[in-house]
Nucleic acid binder design. Structure first.
Length: 267
DNA sequence: AGAATTACCTGAGCGC
DNA sequence: TGCGCTCAGGTAATTC
């Protein structure tokens, strides 16, 4: 599933592919996602030029002069820029046709994705305004994590997956970062020491950055979309052995999400 | 305010 | 071969 690294790689790819292109026609094929795709896209976007592609957490922000198209890929969404329009297939929910004949297509089988239009600043949109600091900026560090965790007894894994606390950390990288920081995911957030918060903030930055770097060398084939081939230490390895000590990993559920950790390495 | 729970959705994998 | 079941999970909304 697209996590922050995949969204960032998508941003970089689309920045190369669609910035500067003039929108000619917009077709909303599936209005009913979890949140409806606004029909006004079809009237407000044509004639506008895509000026930039930004990112806030896992939201992609397309500056379209009159406002911004905001897209979240959800679990299974992806965006492709096609030089020559192919006929839309199943789960192709939104097409943005450009004046040069190419096409930006949003595809999402599970319909967890979100498409938003705002005529104002994306940062001020209600769905984005409450998002916490970007994990790859200096605003996010151990002291920040320590400060916001003091009044929280929730499991630390759920804290770092809370977008209001820090943007864009999903289940995969929450598991990986906690393993790297040697912290048990079910520890109450308020029990973390300043040193542990420092390790955790650093680990989150590292796993995200490494994933972006690995993914950037991974070429997406013309008709398929694949995510980076990173091998994980704990995620998806519930019955496996710890890559560090060789002991048995343990799998539990936190917030109804699969959680894997090493009971002997993580404390 | 913080915590817990639910809804949304479909493909994949599995047992039979 | 196919049926029914479970699982995957980000986020908004709801409830306590």
């Amino acid at each position: 599933m697209p996590e922050l690294p995949e969204v960032e790689l998508t941003r970089r790819r689309l920045e190369r592919e669609v910035v500067g292109k003039r929108i000619e026609v917009v077709k909303v094929r599936t209005p009913k996602l979890r949140l409806p795709i606004p029909g006004e896209l079809e009237t407000v976007l044509p004639g506008r030029t895509m000026r930039s592609v930004g990112r806030r957490g896992k939201y992609l922000l397309f500056d379209c002069e009159a406002g911004s198209l905001i897209i979240h890929l959800g679990m299974t969404g992806f965006l492709r820029h096609l030089p020559d329009p192919l006929l839309p297939g199943k789960h192709d929910h939104l097409d943005v046709f450009f004046a040069d004949g190419s096409l930006l297509r949003f595809h999402d089988p599970r319909k967890f994705g979100t498409v938003i239009w705002t005529s104002g600043s994306p940062a001020e949109h209600p769905l984005l305004s409450g998002i916490g600091p970007e994990p790859l900026t200096s605003v996010f560090d151990g002291s920040y994590l320590f400060r916001v965790s003091r009044s929280r007894r929730v499991a630390v894994k759920l804290l770092i997956m809370n977008a209001a606390m820090v943007a864009g950390v999903g289940n995969i990288y929450a598991n990986e970062a906690l393993f790297r920081a040697a912290i048990r995911p079910d520890r109450p957030a308020s029990s973390l020491t300043p040193a542990e918060c420092e390790r955790l903030a650093l680990s989150i930055r590292e796993v995200l950055l490494e994933s972006i770097e690995q993914g950037s060398t991974y070429r997406v084939a013309e008709d398929t979309v694949a995510y980076h081939p990173l091998e994980f230490d704990v995620y998806g390895r519930g019955k496996g052995a710890c890559t560090r000590c060789g002991g048995a990993l343990e799998e539990i559920r936190l917030g109804n999400r699969s959680t894997v950790f090493c009971p002997s390495c993580q404390h």
